[in-house]
Design a protein around this nucleic acid. Sequence first.
DNA 1: CCAGACGTTGTT
DNA 2: GTCTGG
DNA 3: CCAGACGTTGTT
DNA 4: GTCTGG
Length: 231
Amino acid sequence: MCGRFTQYFSWQDVHAYASLSSTPVDLSPRYNLAPGQQAAVIRDAVDGRRLSMLRWGLIPFWAKSPDIGYRTINARAETARSKPAFRAAYRARRCAVPADGFYEWARIGSRKQPYLVVRGDAPLMLLAGLWEQWRIPDGQTPTKALGGRQAGDVLETFTILTTEANEAMAPVHHRMPVLLDTELLTPWLAGEDVPLEPCRNELLTILPVSTHVNNARNDDPDCVRPLAALI
DNA sequence: CCAGACGTTGTT
DNA sequence: GTCTGG
DNA sequence: CCAGACGTTGTT
DNA sequence: GTCTGG
């Protein structure tokens, strides 16, 4: 699956890699971005391809409370087209999540060994995603998750599509995010059908990292520092 | 008809 | 909002 | 995703 | 066990 990732790239990096047309935004480096937090997301708008900050965990427009967002950080690529929580977004609200890499955990008994997964051929990857708008209903008790927003405000959220692990990922975990090749970015954002399959094995470099990353409070370069070979 | 779910992962 | 189960 | 809380009363 | 916060 995909439950943590990094966004420590520069604006110049992502602007060039994803052919953005919008003006620069301030990007603070993230080495350990967790569900429920704001992340930079690529979307097509009337004025071009933009980078915006959205909350991770898709809340369907019909939801009565934001709680479902804790369980919609991922959408299965095999079924997202038809699931009530995702189908409207699948039709009309595509996005791509730029990342330097993502984390997966291998469970060995009670131990959780984290791995950082990066592309060997590029500094960035694009994770296929969907986004949604949720209007905070009257009487909704304000939680941290709403980030100070009020009833009537619109919260924009997103999810990351997952698929089965390829052979490179399989020893670590049985699911992984869907990676979009750059030539698929335009058709994906436009709502066209593109193959949502496990990426080629050779594309990925899988590096064991310290359990420092397990605690989401830790958001520093130690999270991405590779350990001596372990796999 | 109304009520209640709507999601993923992993683990048992 | 829309579908399924009762 | 993982880590950590999970409760009440009263007082500051 | 389950939910919230990071």
